[in-house]
Nucleic acid binder design. Structure first.
Length: 229
DNA sequence: CACCAGGCAAGTA
DNA sequence: TACTTGCATGGT
């Protein structure tokens, strides 16, 4: 009765998601994310950028680098109150100082201060462990899984939600996991692909897919049934 | 001046 | 479960 409907629909979504990726990579080229020189810096940046413009995060990262605090064993014994002042430009600085310390606790407690050991845990276990840290939610955890550990996990952020909505690929009431499945059930589980796709969505969101639509010049204009991948 | 930015947790109903 | 609110700086 109802079986022939689900598969063709799923196939159509798959083609549209791949078409969007093709158009983005052709328009903007590889983004080479995450901006950061070490796995630990990626993790710190993932927390600092929560609901915050990356340009503000850069100032905070620069301050941390000056104090040589982008090493977990040095950050671990640095006073939280002083840390808050250093990351002040990133906003929510008291909150984020706590969250950084919570992450440090996970790294130090189980691995003696070695992020590579933490990141070598199997992806499912690592995700659960990160989510137990107060201040790390699904997006921050998945950003660490993808950009610091290199696991094939698709990151969903506010830009992604908005773009999916504009293209009628989502209604707006879907959960984080729902949207993550939308990508991961329609695309190969390739960390390089997920890396570029998410970075390209952020790039598009920053420049074209704003809350008040300024779609002028958007490369995804008139992109409804793009065939190729 | 208002609005936005690569969220999350805690509180309320 | 499904909203709502606090957290805060810096750019447009």
């Amino acid at each position: 009765m109802k079986k022939p409907d689900t598969l063709p629909h799923a196939k159509k979504v798959e083609l549209r998601l791949k078409g969007i990726y093709n158009r983005l990579i052709q328009s903007f080229g590889p983004q080479n994310w995450w901006p950061g020189e070490s796995a630990f810096e990626v993790m710190v940046g993932a927390i600092l950028t929560q609901n915050t413009a990356w340009s503000n995060v850069e100032k905070a990262i620069t301050n941390l680098k000056t104090e040589k605090l982008l090493e977990p064993e040095r950050l671990a014994c640095f006073p939280k109150e002083k840390l808050a002042l250093l990351i002040k430009p990133a906003g929510y600085y008291n909150l984020k100082a706590d969250r950084l310390m919570n992450l440090i606790n996970l790294i130090m407690t189980d691995d003696g201060g070695d992020p590579p050991l933490l990141l070598k845990r199997p992806p499912e276990q690592l995700r659960q462990d990160l989510l137990k840290v107060k201040g790390i939610g699904p997006e921050t955890a998945d950003s660490i899984l993808l950009y610091a550990a290199g696991y094939p996990v698709f990151v969903i952020d506010a830009y992604t939600r908005r773009i999916l909505g504009r293209h009628r690929l989502a209604e707006g009431n879907e959960s984080y996991e729902d949207l993550q499945k939308l990508f991961m059930e329609n695309l190969p589980h390739d960390p390089i692909l997920y890396n570029e796709y998410h970075a390209l969505l952020v790039h598009l969101g920053k420049h074209f897919c704003k809350p008040t639509p300024i779609c002028d010049g958007c490369p995804l204009e008139e992109l409804e049934a793009e065939p190729a991948f």
